[in-house]
């Protein structure tokens, strides 16, 4: 009996298994174990969390595989890692390392200002950021098995993630309500493949899992994103830049499971210590914003 690896079924299926979960950024094995113990559904292995990448500036690249490998050895949950937009060789290296999921991420400095990686070429699934439905469907067209909002990473400010999630959800509702003869013009307007626009119209949802990411810093932020329609949540700097990472990590995991239960959220939110310091978007110049990266 032949076994087929790398099909869209096992890639999108893997993402389905992450639903209702929290994916946490970690920079070493010790943090990875804290995340796993707190109930993270996966970890994102990287050298620096987005808040530090933002502060230090310069060119941000894929992490040293040594760091990623140590994290992979430390935990039994899936491990993800980031590559620069369009940097298919970084992706080849991570595939050789047998990472479980690749994030083609605007948090790193883009390697190509016109093209993203052709993700169909890989056995490993990819997650990509999106600000709107057109961008999400372009990434899915390139083979992404999972979508996340971009938000504005490393700010501890959820405002952009909210904007992106609301935009995607309202654009889905719009496409669902369209007549079939309006879909081609809409595909042209959005710059998205017609077949995928048609699929959203017919199914009433994105064809892949859609997580929230970028600026989530508290259990309330996580629940907000879930109530707006996210399937799960990425927390980058929000955990290990908070005063009490163990408590914060557990609280955000609970907030994603009980996102619709205000009494539970009250209990979860109490006495967590300081969340990560936040940045107002007005204080970040246009060229220093990460969400605009991606095409």
């Amino acid at each position: 009996m032949t076994a087929r690896t790398g099909s869209i079924k096992v890639k999108t299926g893997m993402a389905e298994m992450l639903k209702g979960g929290v994916i946490m950024d970690v920079t070493n094995a010790e943090q990875a174990l804290i995340a796993q113990e707190a109930g993270a559904v996966a970890v994102m292995a990287l050298e620096k969390v987005p808040a530090d990448i933002r502060r230090e500036g310069g060119v941000a690249r894929m992490s040293d595989p040594r760091i990623i490998r140590e994290i992979m050895h430390a935990v039994t949950i899936p491990v993800m890692a980031k590559i620069r937009i369009g940097h298919f060789v970084e992706a080849q290296i991570l595939e050789a390392l047998e990472i479980d999921f690749i994030d083609e991420s605007e948090v790193l400095t883009p390697a190509d200002e016109h093209h993203h990686v052709n993700k169909h070429d890989f056995t490993i699934p990819f997650v990509c950021g999106a600000r709107n439905l057109g961008e999400a469907l372009r990434r899915i067209g390139e083979g992404a098995a999972m979508i996340r909002t971009k938000g504005e990473a490393g700010t501890g400010n959820v405002v952009e993630a909210v904007r992106h999630m609301r935009t995607i959800m309202s654009e889905i509702r719009k496409v669902v309500n369209m007549n079939e003869d309006e879909l081609m013009a809409e595909a042209k307007n959005m710059g998205a493949p017609y077949e995928l626009v048609k699929l959203v119209h017919d199914e009433g949802k994105l064809p892949v899992v859609n997580f929230a990411a970028g600026g989530i810093a508290t259990p309330a932020d996580a629940s907000l994103m879930m109530q707006l329609g996210a399937d799960g949540v990425f927390v980058g700097s929000g955990i290990f830049k908070s005063a009490n990472p163990v408590k914060m990590a557990k609280a955000i995991v609970d907030a994603v499971t009980y996102y619709n239960d205000a009494n539970k959220l009250l209990e979860i939110s109490e006495n967590l210590g300081m969340a990560m310091p936040g940045l107002s978007l007005a204080s970040i110049s246009e060229e220093n914003r990460m969400a605009g990266r991606g095409w």
């Binding site: 009996m1 690896t5 096992v10 299926g13 047998e98 479980d100």
Partner: peptide, 9 residues
């Protein structure tokens, strides 16, 4: 194995 070895059969 890891996700790379996930399969349909």
């Amino acid at each position: 194995g890891r996700q790379k070895h996930s399969f349909v059969t």
